[in-house]
Design a binder for these strands. Sequence first.
DNA 1: CGCATTAGCGCTACACCAGGT
DNA 2: CACCTGGTGTAGCGCTAATGC
Lengths: 350, 350
Amino acid sequence: MSSPESLSRQRQARTARGAAATLHDVAREAGVSLATASRVLNGSERKVAESFRERVEAAAKALGYTANVSAQATARGTSPVIALLVADIADPYFGLLASGVARGADEHGLVVTIAITERDPDREARIIRALRGQRPQGLILSASRTDDTESDTARELADFAALGGRIVTFGAGGAENTHVEIDNRSGAEELGRRMAGLGYRSAIAIGAASGVRTSDDRLAGFRAGFEGGGGALGRVLRGDFRRESGAELMTQALAEDIEPGTLVFCISDVVAIGAMSALRAAGREIGTDIAVCGFDDVPSSIDVTPALTTVRIPLAEVGYQAFRATVDADWVQPPLPLEVIVRASTPGLS
Amino acid sequence: MSSPESLSRQRQARTARGAAATLHDVAREAGVSLATASRVLNGSERKVAESFRERVEAAAKALGYTANVSAQATARGTSPVIALLVADIADPYFGLLASGVARGADEHGLVVTIAITERDPDREARIIRALRGQRPQGLILSASRTDDTESDTARELADFAALGGRIVTFGAGGAENTHVEIDNRSGAEELGRRMAGLGYRSAIAIGAASGVRTSDDRLAGFRAGFEGGGGALGRVLRGDFRRESGAELMTQALAEDIEPGTLVFCISDVVAIGAMSALRAAGREIGTDIAVCGFDDVPSSIDVTPALTTVRIPLAEVGYQAFRATVDADWVQPPLPLEVIVRASTPGLS
DNA sequence: CGCATTAGCGCTACACCAGGT
DNA sequence: CACCTGGTGTAGCGCTAATGC
């Protein structure tokens, strides 16, 4: 149809590069119009006669046609991506969450793009801004969030929301955001209660910086439960959510001497595992001497020795629900029950 | 400027939805042409007078403009995404790898989209096909690969490559693919040698299905090193790369009785950790009774008790290099040394 | 009714041109 | 008058969806 010299330079370049068949090519090959080809391959409602449909499908197969998602996105004004922002994808907490998100996305034929904040607020704000360029249908944000509404992140989120994208966060629900509620506070409270019930009377805690929502909730919950049960929560050490933080803070606490029979509550399993390594290094026996408990129930909590007492969060399910929340306007959160799991790291005081 | 009725219906819809400012808006606001605005905000080589540049930047900021990536991608004919295909993002091996990829992508201003194969070959092929639609600059493939060149996956990869995208795999280098070489074979050989040097004379192995490249290499390397050092590798049990596989196979092996002093080589730490849990459940003592070693040096290998002897792979660096390979045509692989790390799970036979 | 025609989507990159050497 | 430099105009990119026939 089109003479060679009518090919634009741009198209020639692309052709040289590898020649993805375009819808145009398919339509020509099938001898139908662009619109018809579009309708049978990507389009929807309107029906096309069987004979045409077959011809188009055959042509598409013959040419190895795959629709260009970017072009569809510009034409449709909406792109089939959902963005996931996590602090650290190598952390099992986020890995599990991400797997749930990915499963949901796959079911809906959406693509998930992932970005890492490395727990740096500036980076976080910058990334959200960059992500805006993709015009994703939704943004799932599971980095370290504080209640601060004056942060750069909060501003970027507002801009993002103004653009029409849905934002899903965990716990902290801002004005524009849907949020998936993980009942950290109650879970921790139940854990505290159970630990008190096991006979522990004295505890210290290893948390993240004050103002970090998840940490604050867990700490407050634990305190309420543990003290309600007759225990006393002493020092609260503050670091972050990394294993090293747990190890360092524990070492530090150990330097000031900790009595046998003390319970160490860590805001996450990863932190608890770090603390355990410090205890081991210091020659203390975990369990009988110093008890440790964590939060999340990441897979390795069952593989450390002694196995770690913790609160199970159905992380993959949480991720899946977060995904649902981004695509479904009338999504309502199903119950996401947390469950205290007592293991050998808190054998109890008899 | 433009009268209301000149707005297309499509644009009206978008506007109602949330009105992302377009380049057009910015240009009008700044009183410059579209081309000039494009050059200062996203464009390239050609320079723009300072006064114009300032006006455009001010307008962009005032309107909260962010370039529409999809539109840029269609216009440029190339999209700034690299796709990462892993078996299971919740597995620490892939998590670490992904973090390296993400770091590289971030440095280059690229987006990484992630997809999960769940170790299902059909899924894998389907996903690669879907990913094609995004026209990513590169595809990093770290799912379970066999040497099979007749698989659906191989066919999809060929189609993908024909389109001009770079493909990076690990270990198995196909015709079209760049690959990042992880010297599993040598690493395992060295491990085998060291274990023999520790006095072990009898070992069993827990691997994945025959034909899975990574597993085969590690198994063969270990056999060579261990037998070369005077040991004898007995049964080789076959499952997959999951923790449960290690646990099941170990339980199975235990049922047939295993002598004290036997070494269990597992193709990955995750599998080894599964095996350890089975050993513990069976009341066997790990280390002094039955020794265990793994491969990868995932973070938890240091947190299990006894700590796991393994071969360290610089996983994040491997991911980073894989990224480099996708974007840089003359990338050459730097050395990625593996290192045997002997820990308490193989105390040695005296 | 069932197809073809075509005007966009937001952006880039070419072609072109005004004014100063 | 060639030749810069630094603007503007506009034809695409591949696709969708409203309208025409």
